[in-house]
Design a protein around this nucleic acid. Structure first.
Lengths: 233, 233
DNA sequence: ATTTCTATGTCGGGA
DNA sequence: TCCCGACGTAGAAAT
């Protein structure tokens, strides 16, 4: 088991009764209970309780992983520096210990991400508005980047902020920041457009108050074959 | 196995070669590879690859969980409505199938949360600034709530935004929103203080630009007994 | 059900 | 390394 833990080739699982302690960015203590502990070959550790996707305790990256015996109980300790954090699992009554080899983990494709949406709209800006032509993607302005920087049919500059899900007031704030930054640099009218499949009511109100615009763009979370024409997802 | 899946009393694991499809807020496809699939008794599902804490695919809540046979391959399908999402796992070569009973998952205590920090600072506001007295916690102002609403030694109103970790420009924005909202309601000077253990450089710049303040407050994520002296974590 | 906020968020990319 | 922003964020609390 120890060999498997350190080999870097296996996923190791231990299930059973344990106590878990965490100290780091916060601190936590789980009293004795049944948990499933998973240590992956990259050293990441997660301790799962009976409910939910989120582990009870975890360690995304370990700089040091140590398995020891103390008072006849197995102690698993996963530490990392930066931030300094430690998760320790004390096994009171391990019910199951096993190692799995997850050999080939192959191609994973996600479609419908904001990056893809951005690429698609950069190629088809008329989906946002007829006559729009894109000047820049990810234009750096102060802190953060403008998703799309464009010019409309009347030659006015347009800042487009993109959201793949329902846009909230945070998105409006982001758009406003960028529009302000751009206006400070160019002495010409600058429009701001929030492009998303939907927008929350407060966000819409705020948009109107700020003189910004909303355009509904429908993200297409569809798994398509590789298109003949390169591009388009 | 099917019985365990539907019994609602076990955590079911299946490891082996599979293909995973997800369609919902986005869409994804994982080619055949080795994965560990975990279905908890609350219906949550997660598919783990060889690396990282985060699953490759997941479903936090399932309204419908179906196990079927198709072309001689087992198909596990987890669906939920609102948002409409579906994860489907096709098992090509299951290497391991097992059910675990995670009986008692007992007391879990986390310390160092923002809520605790807020409670501690509400009891000891002088940790933020001498002469400060707290008027309200979680004061509702428009949308969202002011962490601490206080009055300083000179009688000025103070809006305090709290962060348990390093404060970013988002925290500054939040503070700014609240200060603006409060200023719109009271016709008196209103100060804004961002209280956190640290602040990023851009956030500090932005604070100064907006005439807001930063106070270092050190969170102590230590598991302690209930202190005799009330207050101070 | 919708909106907002916290989180030990995690993760990846860029300066 | 720090900083920033996206994420199918998840999950909880309040409306």
């Amino acid at each position: 088991m120890r060999a498997h833990l350190y080999s870097g080739e296996c996923l190791v699982q231990i299930a059973g009764e344990c106590e878990i302690t965490y100290v780091g960015r916060a601190a936590s203590m789980a009293e004795a209970g049944d948990y499933l502990v998973v240590v992956k070959c990259d050293g990441s550790l997660q301790v799962h309780g009976p409910r939910g996707v989120k582990p009870v305790n975890w360690q995304p990256r370990t700089d040091e992983l140590a398995l020891s015996l103390e008072d006849g109980r197995a102690l698993l300790r996963a530490e990392r520096t930066s931030p300094a954090e430690m998760v320790q699992v004390a096994f009171l009554e391990p019910a199951l210990v096993q190692a799995l080899e997850l050999r080939h983990a192959s191609g994973f494709v996600l479609s419908g991400s904001e990056a893809q949406m951005q690429a698609a709209l950069a190629r088809n800006p008329e989906l946002i508005e007829p006559g729009l032509s894109v000047l820049e993607r990810e234009l750096l302005v102060g802190v953060g980047g403008v998703d799309l920087y464009a010019r409309d049919a009347q030659g006015r500059f347009v800042v487009v902020e993109l959201k793949r899900g329902k846009a909230t007031h945070e998105a409006v704030h982001q758009l406003e920041r960028y529009v302000t930054a751009v206006r400070a640099q160019v002495a010409a009218p600058v429009r701001g457009i929030l492009a998303a499949p939907a927008v929350t009511a407060p966000a819409r109100t705020q948009l109107e108050r700020l003189g910004l615009e909303f355009r509904e763009v429908t993200a297409l979370p569809v798994l398509e074959e590789e298109p003949l024409q390169p591009g388009l997802f």
